[in-house]
Design a protein around this nucleic acid. Structure first.
Lengths: 232, 232
DNA sequence: CGCTCTATTGATAAACCTCAAATACAGTGG
DNA sequence: CCACTGTATTTGAGGTTTATCAATAGAGCG
């Protein structure tokens, strides 16, 4: 599986490894380990010692944190070309989040010493990673502000718009979020409960803004949602 | 002011520039611009185009975001050796936060092309910055979780403990947070209102956990606060 | 067709915010 | 040293938002 040329090609377009020559790139991939995972598989668990650095090749991971009392906060969904577990590997910590596949997912991973060596041999990787991490920081800070200052329904609107942007596919009747997306997941992403999400979606369905079903959301009027998210 | 050896020495101990030789370091500092700012001075404003990359040499900056409706969310306080505006400079964006001094503060700053050149000439800076940013990301994610899953009083306790760790100085009667710290600021850091903070501090004062006054908090029983923060 | 997981909806309660008014505190200038 | 002024803080009352609990309905799967 290591020699699969399709994988190499896909990965080469990622932000993290851009700037490497083809030869360097092949070398990097040879050092990694490739795996295909079924949906709902846990990749690593918050609190476990960090063993590997991960990159998604295909599919999608859910990164979330669990509180003491069992409440889940979804940090982000990551897709092809995105990385996970950087802080753990680089700062020698336990994994600060849990990673779980939401669909069939192909990943590449490197063990700690290997990845550190790659980073040392190819300093541009660090610069690339810095850019990615800075953007993530910015996004989390933005969501932190929203959580502080906005009402629940507004946050749910923003959640749907974010997921639409990251995992939406255009249809005749709107944009479908291509993830198995329960009310509970939307709640965990928005900082609320599944009940409130359910009520809100019901109401929006009456307005003709969305159409939703079991683990499925179709956004039929994104413009209305945007207007709502930006304060009615 | 550029040649002030004290400044050079202070900066040399920072995470960001560690690993540079003395000669390289002097070169880096020569490229920067040094300033001393009075309290409550705005350094840059959320939404402004990014002009410079900043590092605190002495004193402290408050980084916060403002919502549409004027609510303030404090992202962090940064002190000596810490940086600000990285995402803006590296990703060519507007400043995503506002930075304001909370006391008399000395800063060093570099304009965009200069800093990018430094980064190119000294790849270890990128690795160092990556480590710093990853830790910040981790912290914001943790606070995001807390905001989702914990009650207000618990979050206020965590806020005081964080500020104590970052800006506390030991006294005979406890640990004083050495910042002009209003109820409003504590609220902006905890994601609540000044009224709730006031009531909470009053109650803790009765318990003998803290002593507080105008823009001033002294923590007399940190252990009790920790126990409370971790769920009563 | 029955089992399990997800979603809906109503009723209730709790947590927390908002508003208002009073009080305390730190400077400042006489 | 004291009155004065502008903030910061305290505290109460009341209201809103949103969580919680309970019960029912629907969807997908074997």
């Amino acid at each position: 599986m290591n020699e699969n040329p399709l994988i190499v090609e896909d990965l080469h377009r990622t932000d993290i490894f851009k700037g490497l020559t083809d030869a360097q790139w092949v070398q990097v991939v040879r050092n990694g380990q490739h795996e295909r995972l079924q949906p709902k598989r846990t990749l690593f668990l918050q609190g476990d010692p960090a063993e590997r650095f991960y990159m998604v090749n295909k599919g999608r991971l859910k990164l979330f944190k669990l509180s003491e009392v069992g409440k889940e906060a979804i940090i982000r969904y990551i897709g092809a070309g995105e990385m996970a577990a950087a802080v753990a590997v680089l700062k020698g910590r336990d994994y600060p989040v849990t990673a779980e596949t939401v669909e069939e997912t192909e990943i590449t991973s490197w063990d700690k010493p290997t990845f550190l060596r790659l980073l040392h041999d190819h300093p541009e990787i660090a610069v690339n990673m810095l850019g990615v991490v800075l953007e993530r920081l910015d996004e989390v800070q933005q969501r932190y502000l929203e959580l502080c200052s906005e009402g629940v329904e507004q946050r749910i609107a923003r959640t749907l718009l974010r997921l639409m942007q990251r995992a939406g596919s255009r249809r005749a009747d709107g944009t479908l979020i291509e993830l198995p997306l329960s009310r509970q997941s939307i709640a965990d992403y928005s900082g609320t409960t599944l009940y409130t999400v359910s009520r809100t979606l019901s109401s929006w369905e009456k307005n003709g803004w969305v159409q939703s079903g079991r683990e499925r959301v179709l956004i039929t009027d994104p413009h209305a949602l945007v207007k709502f998210a930006e304060g009615n």
